[in-house]
Design a protein around this nucleic acid. Structure first.
Lengths: 362, 362
DNA sequence: TTGAAAGCGCTACCAT
DNA sequence: ATGGTAGCGCTTTCAA
């Protein structure tokens, strides 16, 4: 055994093992492997031969410490199981991997403490970016909390990116990638209104959730634009984005004889629940009741009838988020607030089969 | 400015900044932060005060290099967008985070080269485990390939874990977490057979995919057990686990007048596609055609009628995978092949509304 | 083109 | 209980 950890020792081979065995210096091995420095063909092949023999890979931690290292982006997601989030994550992952970057996914389970812990954990990891996914609760300290995250991360050389939620106020070092939530809702509601619906059951979701707020606001504007009075009694805020919410809200609406001819669901998943309830009541979709969703996840086209909904470019949002970070790094750190610090992507209605002009009242 | 990187310098504060500012040694700061060593209250509070002032977090790379470090598990997944995989990932993430471990998700997009690259990348990262998710193509070099991964990873001190695919042959340092795929299919087919169905359209998916093989085999056994001759002409292998596969297979089956009264789909998603096709042909589910799936993802209960399917404990598989790794590390490395190196979880049929005894022939 | 050596930020061992 | 310091494995000057 040599006086250093022998290669056959426990643990992995080190660059020194490679260097010794190849009879070259550590520096040369490093240069061969990084490939960003001229080396003779002979040296290269000698080193690579040993690398293969030893099945050597560099230690990423050591490399990071010494300056090199693979940029990593961290995705903080409420629940990886939601299709919309999964698509954003996929976009991030793709954009990261084409750049040779790594991505990690961590789930927060809607727990602010865990979110904080994870942000700090990511700060420790020295990630290039922390990407927060999905709508947020617009509670009092939200802005402060995020601003604190942003500065903290910025000081550590990473970037906070908010995807699918509104940008932060003031001069905060963060990037926001958003979609035109309100316009989507406006268009979707208009679609229903144009088809002749007047009594529409509206299920935006919890009223302190940012996406719900935007969707409701868009809906309101559509009613106004069509000169249709907006009846707050037709709005049910009582649930999150689950099938159960849609299911129960429709059951209640039916029980209270709200006389609606259409349901404007906050998400496709909510629409699926609504559809179940309508059917169980012996009514048909869209014959008796039209139903629309929001998100355009795969579920929308797997339902029967296929769901008319608002398309949100989730995957692209993920890609854009990474691109924004990459651009920003190339320009070198922070500087002033910029154009690309807030990008808004478009949404549009996808017409499928779940809407029909109103016939009789249920 | 001090002669070392000042704290106000670019980049993050280091343990030295904290030590200097608190007027203590670097070692003491380390001890306070690790918390695994006795320190006086006074020292602790002095250090923590500065830590808060500087918003200091330790550098995870340096920590890993020096011996400490947060164990990390890497999930390699084909496509994060699949609900089944997402649930496994969720299980992994949960189990990891309760232990204070980190988890990363990387997608392979069904590309063997990318898979290899990622395994090596993870080896560089020194992850505790590389968890490969989902069925695999049972092609010739699969076993060799995986065995190579396993040994390579093992040499670097990490563990290969195969989830949702069969274990490896021979004495390979890997862990497999599997579910009883074949029995699930057996039970599901029996359910249909018991209801009186005889002409069943079978859609297992590509014949070289491990899960498809098991599901088909279970189906065969069920036919045999019920004394029903198995007609290979009723099997359509021509697709992956997508709605399109189910959709097209049913259309073809109808066109060729196969006269089936039930569809045994390879997955819930395939069942959804099948359901669309049946409906578009003007037939009803389950009145004219019964349909069953496999997986029991949320989609299954969002369809109408709600889908009878086989429940697979995906989330638990994820948790079990991490637990197996954790146990193994506590026992200290490899040793002999053990009990826990291959665990098989149970499956069961979930009866919902998509099956009914056959009436007339479509 | 190649080698020697100084760190990167931290932990853990050895003194005190 | 606390401080000094030798590495951990790598990259990157600086010399040769």
């Amino acid at each position: 055994m040599s006086q250093h950890k022998a290669s056959a020792d426990s643990g992995r081979a080190t660059i020194r093992d490679v260097a010794e065995r190849a009879g070259v210096s550590v520096a040369s091995v490093s240069r061969v492997l990084s490939g960003n420095y001229p080396v003779s063909d002979e040296l290269r092949s000698r080193v690579m031969k040993v690398v293969r023999e030893l099945d050597y890979v560099t230690n990423a931690h050591a490399r990071s410490l010494a300056g090199g290292g693979t940029p990593t982006v961290a995705i903080l997601i409420n629940n990886i199981t939601g299709a919309a989030f999964a698509h954003i994550a996929q976009g991030v992952e793709n954009a990261a991997s084409v750049r040779g970057w790594l991505s990690m996914v961590c789930t927060t389970s809607d727990d602010p403490e865990r979110e904080l812990a994870l942000v700090n954990l990511m700060r420790q990891q020295g990630v290039a970016a922390v990407i927060l996914l999905g709508g947020a609760y617009d509670v009092e300290d939200y802005q402060l909390r995020m601003a604190r995250f942003a500065r903290s991360l910025d000081a550590a050389g990473s970037r906070l990116v908010l995807v699918g939620r509104p940008p932060l106020d003031g001069d905060v070092p963060a990037t926001a990638v958003d979609y035109d939530n309100e316009s989507g809702a406006y268009a979707m509601a208009s679609h229903l209104l144009s088809a002749g619906h007047r009594k529409i059951l509206i299920l935006p979701g919890h009223s302190d959730f940012t996406t719900a707020q935007g969707r409701l606001e868009g809906t309101r504007r559509a009613f106004a634009a069509h000169g249709v009075p907006f009846d707050p009694g037709m709005v049910n805020h009582h649930g999150g984005y689950s099938p159960e919410y849609g299911y129960q809200a429709v059951q209640e609406g039916l029980r209270h004889k709200l006389g609606f001819t259409a349901v404007l669901a906050g998400t496709d998943v909510v629409a699926a629940g609504a559809m179940q309830a309508v059917r169980e009541a012996g009514l048909t979709v869209p014959g008796d009741v039209s139903i629309v969703g929001y998100d355009d996840i795969p579920l929308a086209s797997q339902l029967f009838p296929q769901l008319t909904t608002v398309h949100v470019p989730y995957e692209e949002m993920g890609r854009v988020a990474v691109r924004a970070v990459a651009d920003q790094r190339e320009r070198g750190g922070r500087r002033k607030a910029r154009e690309g610090d807030h990008v808004v992507l478009g949404t549009h209605v996808v017409v499928r089969q779940s809407v029909q002009p109103p016939a009789r009242r249920p």
